[in-house]
Nucleic acid binder design. Structure first.
Lengths: 202, 202, 202, 202
DNA sequence: CTCTAATCGAGACGGTACGTCGCGTCTTACG
DNA sequence: CGTAAGACGCGACGTACCGTCTCGATTAGAG
């Protein structure tokens, strides 16, 4: 006990400053790829830094020159992929109808299926959910609040968590439903209810 | 790596066989209480078994005579409390309207506020969610599926996750809303949508 | 460290008070037999008290009602057998020639071969040697010192140690020499040299 | 029980590969010195690895990076010192008379008295004897067998054991005899009898 | 033939030391 | 002269026995 500094706090801060040095970019990409591979073989907590550097074929000490902890690497990996996902679906959500947005999201997840399986079923679900919520909260700051009886932050939290949960359930399926079916559920349960988009008749 | 057996699987099995030996009951109660206290001071992963036994003032080795891992102790603690919660709210949900059920649940959480704060904000949220989902799935086996377009299992998962998320958000508030307000959100977002209850007389 | 009380000291004291209660006699015999068996399977230090009680099919706690440590049980077992050996050979040594004494000793060891193999090759050699020396020293108190240039105590120590060493070497042999050959070595090396007996009429 | 692999077997193998890294040499020297000191305070079995590292002021884990067990450390320490002793006495024994050899040995033991007291009276006598016998057997492979009626291996065992026993007796004395007296006993009892050297001109 | 006390079975418990694993730092030796 | 290899300090882990302690359940052997 004693030193109860919240490590996780620092790990989230990583702004991924888009380095110019190609060696740095190559090294980090190697780490991300190695982690992604390992997540398909074992849950995140069971993966050690030594596993990661062995897989990436990079020296152990080098890891700490780039990330303070393995959680920071996971955050790096997650933030990147979540960013892509939100870039795809949020704009559509704003301008068009909800179903199209959900379908875009589901199609993208299915396209990078193995990556998202690793992220959502590899014991990292908690971290992913947190990153997802954080990024969404950050992006929706300039939106209007859709519901009066529902504070915006909890609305976003519920919508995001439900999305993560639904995707995880989908990826756990032995014979996965088509993206259209998942998108329909997503639209009806999440978008319509929480965001007030009527999704359907227009 | 190598041995990638999922430890968590075994931890959930703990059936709490209601021992007769008073020494055993006293010891386990001591462990549960110690963990509950510690969860209010530090996140679950940072709490070591040695912390727990020190707080409970029980010998280190004795811990393993009762629980294989600290996760198992958490599961024991969580299952007990989740059981109480579901006992309170599920019957009401079945026979009466949804809002009353949600209100009963929220009132109970507010009554044992410090315990639930520890469970939901103490870094154990993932485990709690899992336990919550599992117990709910087990109890709803004999229910009718309320929605045709929504498979029952994912419906339960979404409802349960949203409940956990909402409670966690509530307990994080500096000046908490009254239970009635949370119960209203819960009823409108979760019960009406996912379970098809139309939410009483309005 | 700190408490550096020599445990072994107490273990040697066991006076074996020849109990009358048949339960007690039965129990102790069971322990001795179990230890003897186990010594043929594993070195003494690797045998635990729990192994012994399991083999003897007696409750764990009962062990401590009879012996303070497993070393005490070994001492009990060893003292008994060493006593038999010395009863056989020492009187002959005093009155007759040395070879006859050695032969009697070797014949007896060969007769209870498996027991002595366990005692001497079962990792207990050090304790046996000590017990052997102690008993011999106690019995020879009233003897005359045979050599002027050799203090009696070291003479006894050397003779006894050599005897133990020779017996152990004998019992390690794949195809053991006959007792007569060992007795001859024993007589020439140990008795003649250290005790000044000239080794019979030849 | 169950796994009855003889641990001691591996411990003897340590070839002391004369490392170049100064950190390694420093660490091992520290362990040897610590053990030597502790042996003067408590019997070997009562000394724990934690005692050793505490005395050496080295991290606990580091011990196992150098020795598999504390017995291996003892073997390291013993082999080194026994080697010195045999280097001193065996050559003299071969070329010159036996007494000179014994005297050289006794003088050396007296010179490093505290070390040999620790080794022989510190509860490690059994291990020392074994190491002594092994090294002597290894070195005498190319010698002639001195006695026809006495197999060479048991001759060496008896001579070596007697030497160890005599030295231990000597070091236990409150007011030790002079080396010359011990060397005389050693020559008469051990060398003359077992090795057939007639012990000089007297 | 009880009855009383010693003996035994069972097992929870407080302890000590073990040997392992992974972490992150810091030193060495090498290219 | 920087950089990999790896020795090291550190802390928690889970295990194996240890010996102590309460209970009851048996089982002598004396009245």
């Amino acid at each position: 006990m004693e030193s109860v500094r919240d490590k996780a706090a620092d790990d989230r801060a990583a702004p991924a400053p888009e380095h110019s040095d190609p060696r740095i970019r190559r090294t980090r990409k190697g780490f991300r790829l190695a982690l992604q591979e390992l997540l398909q073989e074992a849950p995140f907590e069971q993966i050690t830094i030594r596993d990661i550097v062995a897989r990436a074929d990079i020296a152990y000490t080098t890891f700490f020159r780039h990330y303070p902890t393995k959680e920071a690497l996971l955050a790096d990996l997650a933030d990147e992929e979540i960013g892509k996902l939100l870039d795809l679906s949020l704009p559509v959500l704003g301008s068009h109808d909800g179903y199209a947005s959900c379908l875009a999201l589901c199609n993208h997840v299915m396209a990078s299926r193995s990556l998202w399986t690793a992220l959502l079923l590899g014991g990292a679900q908690g971290a992913i959910r947190t990153a997802f919520v954080d990024q969404t909260l950050a992006r929706q700051a300039n939106w209007p609040a859709p519901q009066t009886w529902l504070p915006q932050d909890i609305g976003t939290i519920l919508a995001t968590s439900a999305t993560v949960e639904l995707l995880a359930w989908w990826l756990r399926q032995a014979e996965p439903d088509p993206p259209s079916r998942i998108a329909e559920i997503m639209d009806r349960v999440i978008v319509s209810t929480l965001l007030g988009k009527s999704g359907g008749g227009d």
